[in-house]
């Protein structure tokens, strides 16, 4: 299923990426990703994640695949959440390079908002990267306001 071009561009821009998963007992877990590649035609998003920092999240995806991802622009809180099923792959060279670029641009974006590099460093970690390949099933508006939580696209 095709992902809207504007949305794809938004997801690949310097936005904060947060991940939600759960274990077998339905206990949720939180993590951050350091970069996204959108494969529009396939309806897929690849996410670079540090397994060293977020081991429980990667284990949850390996176990059940259910994954929710919110992309939020720090300057104005414009946000979208995508949900679907994901698999874990080892990070290809392109994903390692992607994470590098993302960390650079994110640190400078947050720097413009007055956050020092030493403060944002713990959120932008590239140690032991893996790739989560998310097959998107639902897309929601998440920007704070009346439309928050509204479903904008659903793929069978």
């Amino acid at each position: 299923m095709l992902i809207n071009q504007d949305l794809a561009a938004f997801m690949a821009s310097p936005v904060m990426i947060i991940l939600g998963t759960r274990d077998d007992a339905l206990v949720p877990e939180i993590a951050r990703a350091v970069g996204a590649v959108v494969r529009r035609e396939e309806g897929c998003v690849d996410l670079a994640v540090s397994e060293w920092q977020w081991s429980k999240t990667v284990a949850n995806v390996r176990a059940n695949g259910q994954l929710a991802v919110t992309f939020a622009r720090p300057s104005d809180y414009v946000s979208y959440q995508v949900k679907g099923h994901a698999t874990v792959a080892s990070a290809a060279a392109e994903h390692v390079a992607l994470a590098r670029r993302y960390i650079e641009s994110m640190a400078s974006t947050l720097g413009e908002l007055g956050l020092e590099r030493r403060v944002v460093a713990p959120w932008l970690v590239e140690r032991d990267l893996v790739t989560l390949c998310l097959s998107v099933q639902e897309i929601f508006v998440q920007t704070p306001g009346a439309k928050a939580g509204q479903l904008i696209e659903q793929f069978p």
Partner: peptide
């Protein structure tokens, strides 16, 4: 801050908190 929850069918939700 951030909050993650899960629906009874297992689908997680991830959101920022004010």
């Amino acid at each position: 801050s951030i909050i993650a929850t899960a629906a009874p069918d297992g689908m997680p939700n991830i959101s920022y908190l004010s």
